Amino acid sequence: MNTYSLTETLAVLANAPQALLYLSGTNCGVCHVMKSRVQALAEKHALTALEINLTEQPEAVAAFEVLTVPAVLLYAHGREYHRQARFIDLTELSERIQNPPLSNTDYAEIFKQAV
């Protein structure tokens, strides 16, 4: 998993059929432990995986509306369809990776079901 600038990340997320964004912090021990696990999961599913260190790029906090780290955001067809923060459930994350929404999915329905 490579670290990218905010601009590069937004471009990849907009164009990748499916992608995983890992948001971390420099002094976050949990972030360092979870990174290798999330990266292994992304590799297992041949998923485009990116990382942004929010300590180094604080402007990304507002761009992705993240209040805590680590955070994992899944994207399909340029749109976020799943996120987890602080406590990352790798089983649920794997299931969500395997079942991304179709390109014509109504995203209001995805988030309506999650409530």
Rank of each mutant, 00 (worst) to 15 (best):
A11W: 03
K44V: 09
Q18A: 14
M34L: 03
Y4I: 10
E8R: 09
C28P: 03
L23V: 02
N15C: 15
R37W: 10
C28A: 10
E43M: 02
S24C: 10
L20I: 00
A40E: 08
T7F: 15
N15T: 10
Q18P: 10
V12M: 08
K35D: 10
A11R: 00
V33M: 08
N27G: 10
A42H: 01
A14W: 12
S24F: 06
A11K: 13
A16R: 14
A19Q: 13
T26P: 11
G29C: 11
T7N: 13
A11Y: 09
L20F: 11
K35H: 11
K35L: 14
L6W: 06
A42F: 04
V12S: 08
C28D: 13
L6K: 02
L10D: 14
K44Q: 15
Y22V: 07
Y4A: 15
A16H: 09
Q18S: 12
Y22F: 09
P17I: 07
V30L: 12
T26G: 11
Q39H: 08
P17Y: 13
R37I: 01
A19N: 14
E8C: 12
A14R: 14
S36V: 13
H32W: 02
T9Q: 04
S24R: 06
L6E: 01
A16K: 07
C31V: 05
C31L: 04
N15Y: 06
T9D: 09
S36W: 06
L21R: 03
G29L: 05
S36R: 14
L13M: 07
Y4F: 15
V30N: 01
L21Q: 02
L13K: 07
L13V: 04
L23G: 02
E8K: 12
V38F: 12
L13W: 00
K44I: 09
C31A: 03
V38G: 02
G29V: 04
E43T: 14
H32G: 01
L41A: 02
E43K: 10
A19S: 09
S5A: 07
L23M: 06
S36A: 12
Y4T: 15
Q39R: 06
Q18E: 15
C28F: 00
A40D: 08
P17A: 15
K44R: 12
L6Q: 05
N27E: 15
G25Q: 11
K35S: 09
L10V: 09
E8S: 12
T7H: 14
C31H: 02
K35I: 05
G25V: 00
K44T: 14
K44P: 09
A14H: 11
T3H: 04
V12R: 04
N27P: 09
E43A: 07
C31Y: 10
A16F: 06
N15P: 11
L20V: 08
T9N: 09
S5R: 07
L23F: 02
V33N: 01
T26C: 01
L13D: 04
L20K: 04
V33C: 00
S36T: 09
L41I: 02
A42P: 06
K35N: 09
V30C: 01
T9E: 08
V12E: 05
R37V: 10
C28T: 02
L10T: 02
G25K: 15
S5D: 05
A40N: 01
A42T: 07
G25N: 04
G29Y: 05
V33D: 11
K44N: 04
G25F: 03
R37E: 12
